[in-house]
Simulated scan of single mutants.
Amino acid sequence: MLAAGALVWREHGGGLQVLLVERTQHRDFSLPKGKLDPGETLPECAAREIEEETGLRIALGAPLGQSEYRLPDGRDKVVYYWQAKVDEAAVSAAPFSPNDEILALEWLPLADAKRRCTYEHDVAIIERFEQRVAAGHAETFPIIALRHAKAADPYRWEGSDASRTLTERGERQARLVAGGIAAFAPERIVTSDAVRCVQTVEPLRRLLGVDPKVTAAISQEPHEQPGTDPRDEIERRIAKAVRKRRGTVLCSHAPIIPEIVTAVVHAADAAETERTHRASMLHTAEFTVLHVSAGEEPALVALETHGAPEG
């Protein structure tokens, strides 16, 4: 069984507090989480479950790993967690009343939260977050590299390559990944001017209410022209997004995605590794989230890759 949740935290009284939930039936204290629904990405599940259980609408930060344990009925359960900051206004505005699932919400300092947790796997997640806090990486922002969804066969398409449209499968992929990307609440969408890329971000545009910036700077065609090297422009755009601490989605093509990922690595003063290389090798409608520290100096805190759910 797959599930997802978040370590929701806030600044309060000069310190940090973590949100625990007391479950109605079990009367235990744990981090909020819930089961993955069909057709849902794990990030989307985490954001949805937090809102359903606590009333809080969150933006996911960097991932905190996963917990694996066996349920009383013998099934294995894997829960994926992210850190997520909320402000006092969001907490005050969040509607909550005890229900059949959650009896109470409790905000506690980190040390108290670890003592209150019923399960050691929740304590381990809080301890990972403590390490992030100590490193100055409690707050992050996302740079998201998205490969366009499945498009028409280029060998059968009669128009230009840039005019190729999404297939029915591609349109479905675009709808399915939009919720997962939106869970990280990016502020800006930048897309290649190829039709298939513009169509891929359309469901995301509707979810976020953010109009995309359409540009040839991250399209495939300029890179294929002899004597041109648009990598400097990509590096410049990414460096600006990192400098402004602006969560950004960039929708592009298979040959361009590695350049986007590399530009984020450079802007965050990180090292290129086998992991960053793998994170740039995306299939259609897959996206890699690079979490950059919003602290004084940018740093690559974590990265993760997701795609359209099957079925």
Rank of each mutant, 00 (worst) to 15 (best):
A94Q: 06
P212V: 10
I234T: 13
A267M: 04
D76Y: 07
L103S: 15
R236P: 07
Q66H: 09
W157R: 06
L146P: 07
P186C: 10
V201M: 12
R70K: 08
P38R: 10
V210S: 14
N99T: 06
S97M: 08
A93K: 07
A90I: 00
E168K: 01
D161R: 01
C251Y: 06
M1F: 04
F287M: 03
C197G: 10
D87T: 06
A308D: 05
R231Y: 14
T215E: 13
A104W: 15
E11A: 14
V195S: 15
Q225I: 14
R156C: 05
A271G: 03
A217K: 09
E297P: 06
H223K: 08
R70T: 02
R128P: 11
E286G: 12
A47F: 01
L108K: 12
I234A: 13
R205Q: 15
H277M: 11
S219M: 07
F287Q: 04
R70P: 06
L208C: 11
Y81A: 07
G227R: 11
A178C: 09
M281Q: 15
C251R: 03
G307Q: 00
P255T: 08
S192P: 13
G74M: 05
R48A: 02
H266M: 05
E233N: 08
A217H: 11
C45N: 11
D76F: 02
G39F: 13
V292G: 14
G295N: 10
L110M: 08
E88K: 05
F141S: 09
Q83A: 14
W157I: 07
V78L: 15
R175H: 09
E296I: 07
I234Q: 13
A279T: 03
W82K: 06
S67V: 06
D161V: 06
P222T: 00
E297D: 11
V8R: 03
K213E: 15
P255Y: 02
R237E: 12
R57T: 00
R237M: 15
R231V: 15
V190H: 09
L71C: 08
I125H: 02
N99I: 04
T273A: 08
E286Y: 14
R246D: 15
E296N: 10
T118A: 08
T54Y: 00
A241E: 14
E120W: 05
